[in-house]
Design a protein around this nucleic acid. Structure first.
Length: 993
DNA sequence: CTTCTCCTGCTTTTT
DNA sequence: GCAGGAGAAG
C-alpha cells in the first residue's frame, strides 16, 4: 500500500486520494485535518507528478505553516518540501509582490506597515482633518473595507453621511502609505490580487492550490485562492465552520458555499472521527456548539473512551482562580505519577490581558510557563527602537519609523523641531528623510530656524543612518541584519542609554536586545544558499525583480518581524518537563494539550462584552474546549472587580453553559485522581499507565489530594476546618506536611489500594468511593461511574465513515443530506443525524445520575493495604510510552516511515509524536544532537515548532543561549514586582517572596 | 525649546 | 505596565 496513506482512516484516505479537481474537506476538531491536507500534498506530488514549486499551499498562521513544513519534510523529504510555495496568505503575497510588484507599479523595497504604524498614520490624519472618529475604529473600518476589496473610490459612491468622513480618512491614509512606500497587512493581499488579475502569467505555473482553515478566509483571500488556481482550477481546502473564529477579521463562512457555486465539480469529504479528546470532553463541547441553532448539525465521533468529566469550577475571585489553577496543576501532576508534565498543560484565554494574574500566580508558585499570542517581544520599547533603526536604514521613506527614533536616544530634537521638519517636508512634497537631509546639508531651510542643538542632533542621526546604509551595501549576504544591528547598537552606545533610561531593569532590557541580535543572526545560520522559501519559480516571459542580497535579507527580516504572531518562546530545557502554555484561544487553534484550563468563563469575558457576533464567541469556547485531550477545566471568578457587569463586581456564568449542560456534563470540583481516572488519562494520551508506586510517591508534597480549598460554590474553606493554612506559600513544595495533611495521605493510600483490588477483580462495581466530608458525594460518585462504563461500546463504533458527495451547482447541489448538513436546511438533516449518532454519551447521562445517587452512600474507605513506606517511595521517572498504538490513524507518527531516505529524519522515527510532550522532549534531543544539521532544516525540521518562531529556533542552535534562554521568565519577573505591589491591596494573603 | 514627571485610560481576538 | 497628553522645571 502507498505509504502516504499509512495510518489514515477511510475518510481521510478518501480525501487524500480524491481525484476531484476541487475538493472540500470538512472536519471537526481533532479529526486530522492538517494531517489529511499534508498527506494530500504528498499524494498530489507523487501521483499527479506536480512539481513542488507549482503547488501553492496557504495557511493562516505562521505556526500552522511551519508545522505543515515540518510534517511535509518527513513525508516527502526536506528537499521537495522546501520548494513548495507554502506559507501564510500574507507571506506568500509578499513573496509575489517582491518579485513582480513592479508590474503593478509597486516601488522596489516596499515596507510593511504594522498596526502601530497604521495607527500612528491614522492618528496624524485624523488630527489633521479634525475628525472625531476614534483611531482604532477607523483602523478597523478601513481594514474591513480593504478586506472586502473596496477602495476609497468604490466607497465614495455610497453617500452615507457617517461614511463620508471615513472615506476621506481612508484615502488620505492610502496616500500616506503610498508616499512612504508601505503596504499594510490588507494591502499585501489586495495588491497581490491586483497583480494576479492584471498579470495572471505570474502564476501560470501553478498546478494546484491548497488552503488550510478555509473557514477563516475573507473575500480577498478567497479571491486570491481563485487567482492562484486560475489556470488549472484545482483546489483543495480543509475547514470547519464550527471553528470559524475570525469573523472580526472579515472571515466569511459563506466562502464555502461560494466555492461550491463557482466550481460546479466540487467534491466534499467529511471527516467525523475525533482522535484527540476523550468522550466526556467531546460531549460537553458538542453540547456547547449545538446551542447554535443556525448551525447545521454535524457528527463528531469519539474514538477515545469517555474519560473523566470536565470541571466547571467556581472561585471567589480572579486571584483565587489563579491560585486554584496552580493547585490543580500540582495536584494532577503529583497524583498521576509522572504521567503529566508541565508542558502538558495549557491555559487558554479569551483575552491576552487576562494572563497577568495567572502569570504572577505561576511565578510565585514556581510554575514555569510561556505566553503565546500577542506580539510582546517585538513590542518592547528597546526592541522596537532598534527595529525602527533597521527599518529606516532599509527603507528611508518610512517616516513613522524615523519619527520614532529621531530623538531616541535623546538628541535634543523636540516637538517644535519635529513640527518644523514634518511641516516642511509636507510642503516641499518630499519624504521626511529627504527633507531632513536637505536641511542639514543646506539645500533647504525650515520655516523657523532650527536650534543649534537640534541641528547637531539631526546631523548625528543622518550620519549614522548613512553610514549604516553604506555598510548594508557592502554586505552582500544574509548577515546584513545582524551586522547592522551590532553596528547601530554600538554607535548609539545603546547599552549605556538603556542603563541611564531604565536603571531598574537595564538587565532585562539589555537581554532583550541580545535576544533580538540572536534572532537577527538566524538569517545567517540558514545561509549557504538563498532561503528557498523566498524563491519563486522563473516563468518564461515574466521578469523577476532582482534585489541586492543584503537589502533583501534585511527587508525579509523586517517583514518576518511584522508578520510574526508568536514572537517569543522560552527555555524548554528546564529540568525536562517544559512549561505550561498560556495562550489566547485564537492562538491555540489547531493545537492540543492533555490538560486545558479555560479560566474566566463569565459573561463579558466570553462572550466578550465588545463582541459583535455572539455565535462566534460560542465557537471560540468550542475551539478552546476541543483543544483538551484528557482533562478539561473551566473556571470563573464569582467577583471580578473591573469587567463583569454587576456593580459589585459579581459575575455570571457564560450563557453558553446553561444549567442543563453544567448539570449533565460537568463536575464542580477537580476530579479525584484514583487509579481508574489516571488510567483513563493515560489511555487517552496513549501513554503507559503509571504503577501503583508511582501514583503514591508524590502525595506528600501536596497540601491536599482533593480540590477542596474552596467549596464547590466557590467559597473559601475556613482554615481550621480543613487543614488549609492560608498563610503558606504554595510555591514552596519543600515545606513539611502539616499535621492535618497526614489524614489525606492515609486516604490516598486507602484509595489506591482499593482501586487495585477492584482492578484485579475486573469488575467496575466493586469500587470504593473514598470520600471526605468536604467533597460532595454526588460529584465524586458520578466521577466513578463516568470513568468506567462505555469503553466497549464506544470502541465498537469508532470505525470511521466517509461520505463523499459530488455536488452539482446546476441542480442546486444541495439535495444530499450530508451537504445540507453543512449548508442547507438544518432542520431536516438534524434529527436524522442525531439518531445516527453513537448514543453512549448524552443518552446515558441520566442513568449516570441515577446510578450516581444510588452509589452515594458508600462507606468510608477501607484500611490501607499499601505499606506506609510506599508513600515516600521514589522511583526513577520512566520514559513515556514512545508511540501510539497502531489503531490510531491520526498523529504525525505515521509519516515517519515514508520519509525520503535522503533525509536524515528517516533515521529517527521516534521523534515524531503529536503530543506536545513529545514534541518538546524530542526536539530537545534533536536540536542538541551533533550531526543534526540538515542544511535547510533549521526552519522546519525541529519539531519545536509549536511555540516558537522560525527565528527562535535558530537561536537555540546558537551557542550563546545561556544569556537569552530564560528571557521569557525574566521578563515576566519584571512585571511581578509591580503587579504584586498593586495586588497586595486586594490580594489573597499569598505571600510574596 | 527640551526634558522630566505625573496623570489618565486602557485592553478582543491576528496577519 | 504602557502610551499619550499636560504642565512644570531646566
Amino acid at each position: 500500500m502507498d505509504p502516504i496513506l499509512d495510518g489514515l482512516n477511510h475518510a481521510q484516505r478518501e480525501a487524500v486520494t480524491s481525484s476531484a479537481p476541487v475538493l472540500q474537506v470538512l472536519a471537526p476538531p481533532g479529526s486530522g485535518k492538517t494531517k489529511t491536507l499534508t498527506a494530500r500534498v504528498a499524494y498530489l506530488l507523487s501521483h499527479h507528478g506536480y512539481q513542488p514549486q507549482d503547488v501553492i499551499c496557504c495557511t493562516f498562521t505562521i505556526k500552522a505553516s511551519r508545522e505543515m513544513r515540518e510534517r511535509l519534510s518527513k513525508l516527502i523529504g526536506e528537499k521537495l518540501q522546501s520548494r513548495l510555495i507554502l506559507g501564510t496568505f500574507h507571506s506568500i503575497c509578499r513573496r509575489y509582490l517582491v518579485k513582480y510588484g513592479y508590474l503593478i507599479g509597486l516601488r522596489k523595497g516596499f515596507g510593511i506597515a504594522d498596526s502601530d504604524d497604521t495607527r500612528a498614520i491614522l492618528r496624524r490624519i485624523i488630527k489633521r482633518l479634525k475628525s472625531t472618529i476614534d483611531v482604532r475604529a477607523a483602523q478597523g473600518r478601513i481594514s474591513k473595507h480593504k478586506a472586502h476589496g473596496l477602495s476609497p473610490r468604490d466607497l465614495s459612491d455610497k453617500v452615507k453621511a457617517d461614511e463620508v468622513e471615513l472615506v476621506e480618512i481612508y484615502s488620505a491614509y492610502n496616500e500616506a502609505l503610498a508616499a512612504a512606500n508601505l503596504l499594510d497587512y490588507d494591502d499585501l493581499l489586495v495588491r497581490c490580487c491586483d497583480l494576479l488579475r492584471e498579470h495572471p502569467e505570474c502564476v501560470s505555473n501553478v498546478q494546484t492550490v491548497l488552503v488550510d482553515e478555509f473557514q477563516d478566509t475573507n473575500i480577498i483571500q478567497y479571491e486570491l485562492m481563485n487567482l492562484f488556481a486560475a489556470k488549472h482550477r484545482r483546489i483543495t481546502i480543509v475547514g470547519d465552520p464550527d471553528q470559524s473564529i475570525y469573523g472580526f477579521r472579515s472571515a466569511e463562512i459563506q466562502n464555502l458555499r461560494r466555492m461550491q457555486k463557482k466550481y460546479s465539480n466540487t467534491s466534499v469529504v467529511l471527516l467525523e472521527s475525533n482522535y484527540r479528546s476523550c468522550g466526556s470532553i467531546l460531549n460537553s463541547a458538542q453540547d456547547v456548539i449545538e446551542q447554535d441553532t443556525t448551525r447545521p448539525a454535524k457528527k463528531l465521533e469519539a474514538t477515545h473512551k469517555f474519560g473523566t468529566l470536565p470541571v466547571l469550577r467556581k472561585l471567589p475571585n480572579p486571584n483565587a482562580e489563579a491560585t486554584w489553577m496552580v493547585l490543580e496543576i500540582k495536584r494532577s501532576i503529583a497524583l498521576t505519577g509522572d504521567l503529566l508534565r508541565m508542558c502538558d498543560f495549557a491555559v487558554l484565554l479569551r483575552s491576552a490581558s487576562l494572563s497577568t494574574r495567572i502569570e504572577s500566580a505561576f511565578g510565585r508558585a514556581g510554575i514555569p510557563y510561556k505566553m503565546v499570542g500577542g506580539r510582546k517581544f517585538f513590542d518592547r520599547v528597546e526592541v522596537k527602537t532598534l527595529l525602527n533603526y533597521l527599518r529606516v536604514v532599509s527603507h528611508s521613506d518610512h517616516s513613522d519609523a524615523l519619527l520614532n527614533i529621531i530623538n531616541v536616544p535623546p538628541r535634543r530634537i523636540g516637538d517644535e523641531t519635529i513640527k518644523q521638519l514634518t511641516g516642511g517636508a509636507e510642503k516641499a512634497g518630499v519624504t521626511l528623510w529627504v527633507f531632513i537631509k536637505d536641511v542639514i546639508q543646506g539645500r533647504r531651510a525650515t520655516e523657523k530656524k532650527l536650534q543649534k542643538a537640534a541641528e547637531l542632533g539631526l546631523c548625528a542621526l543622518v550620519k549614522l543612518i548613512d553610514a549604516s546604509r553604506q555598510k548594508l551595501q557592502d554586505c552582500a549576504d544574509a548577515s546584513a541584519p545582524c551586522v547592522l544591528l551590532e553596528y547601530i547598537v554600538e554607535s548609539l552606545s545603546f547599552q549605556e542609554y538603556l542603563l541611564k533610561t531604565y536603571p531598574l531593569d537595564e538587565d532585562g532590557r539589555w537581554a532583550n536586545v541580545k535576544e533580538l541580535m540572536g534572532q537577527a543572526s538566524d538569517v545567517v545560520t540558514s545561509d549557504g544558499e538563498t532561503n528557498p522559501e523566498e524563491d519563486l519559480p522563473e516563468i518564461e516571459g515574466v521578469e523577476q525583480q532582482q534585489t541586492h542580497p543584503g537589502e533583501e535579507a534585511l527587508s525579509r527580516f523586517l517583514a518576518n518581524v511584522a508578520l510574526a504572531t508568536e514572537a517569543q518562546s522560552k527555555d524548554e530545557d528546564d529540568g525536562g518537563s517544559g512549561s505550561v502554555t498560556i495562550s489566547t484561544i485564537h492562538a491555540a487553534k489547531g493545537l492540543e494539550w492533555p490538560v486545558v484550563f479555560i479560566p474566566a468563563v463569565y459573561n463579558g469575558s466570553i462572550p466578550h462584552s465588545r463582541a459583535e457576533v455572539v455565535d462566534e464567541e460560542r465557537r471560540l469556547l468550542y475551539v478552546a474546549m476541543t483543544r483538551a485531550q484528557a482533562l478539561l477545566y473551566l473556571s470563573l471568578p464569582l467577583k471580578q472587580p473591573r469587567v463583569g457587569e454587576g456593580e459589585d463586581g459579581s459575575t455570571s456564568l457564560t450563557p453558553f453553559l446553561p444549567p442543563r449542560i453544567v448539570k449533565s456534563r460537568f463536575r464542580l470540583k477537580g476530579p479525584q485522581f484514583h487509579e481508574q481516572v489516571v488510567y483513563g488519562i493515560a489511555d487517552t494520551l496513549r501513554r503507559a499507565r503509571p504503577t501503583a508506586e508511582e501514583l503514591c510517591k508524590d502525595i506528600a508534597t501536596l497540601p491536599s489530594i482533593l480540590d477542596d480549598r474552596w467549596t464547590s460554590e466557590g467559597e473559601e474553606v475556613r482554615a481550621e476546618d480543613n487543614g488549609w493554612n492560608h498563610q503558606q506559600n504554595w510555591g514552596d513544595s519543600t515545606q513539611e506536611p502539616s499535621t492535618k495533611r497526614r489524614r489525606y495521605d492515609d486516604e490516598r493510600r486507602a484509595l489506591t489500594s482499593n482501586s487495585i483490588t477492584s482492578h484485579k477483580s475486573g469488575t467496575s462495581s466493586t469500587f470504593m468511593v473514598p470520600t471526605t466530608m468536604s467533597t460532595g458525594g454526588f460529584t465524586s460518585a458520578r466521577d466513578y461511574i463516568a470513568v468506567q462504563p462505555e469503553d466497549s461500546k464506544s470502541g465498537a463504533s469508532s470505525q470511521a465513515k466517509a461520505q463523499v458527495i459530488t455536488t452539482s451547482a446546476h441542480q442546486d447541489g444541495l439535495n444530499q443530506a450530508s451537504i445540507s448538513t453543512f449548508f442547507g436546511n438544518p432542520g431536516v438533516s438534524r434529527t436524522k443525524d442525531r439518531s445516527s449518532q453513537p448514543n453512549f454519551p448524552s443518552a446515558k447521562s441520566t442513568s449516570h445520575d441515577r446510578l450516581a445517587s444510588s452509589t452515594k452512600p458508600q462507606p468510608q474507605s477501607a484500611p490501607s493495604h499499601v505499606p506506609v513506606s510506599l508513600a515516600s517511595h521514589r522511583l526513577q521517572p520512566r520514559p513515556l510510552h514512545p508511540s501510539r498504538p497502531a489503531l490510531e490513524p491520526a498523529g504525525p507518527t505515521s509519516y515517519t516511515w515514508m520519509a525520503a531516505p535522503t533525509s536524515s529524519d528517516a533515521l529517527k522515527p521516534a521523534r515524531m509524536f503529536s503530543s506536545p510532550a513529545f514534541q518538546n522532549q524530542m526536539s530537545e534531543s534533536t536540536s542538541k544532537g551533533p550531526g543534526e544539521t540538515t542544511p535547510a532544516s533549521s526552519s522546519s525540521v525541529r519539531s519545536k515548532a509549536f511555540y516558537t518562531t522560525t527565528m527562535d529556533q535558530v537561536r537555540q542552535q546558537a551557542p550563546t543561549t545561556t544569556g537569552r534562554r530564560t528571557l521569557g521568565i525574566r521578563r515576566s519577573m519584571n512585571g511581578w514586582a509591580d503587579r504584586m505591589k498593586r495586588e497586595k491591596t486586594g490580594g489573597q494573603g499569598d505571600r510574596m517572596q
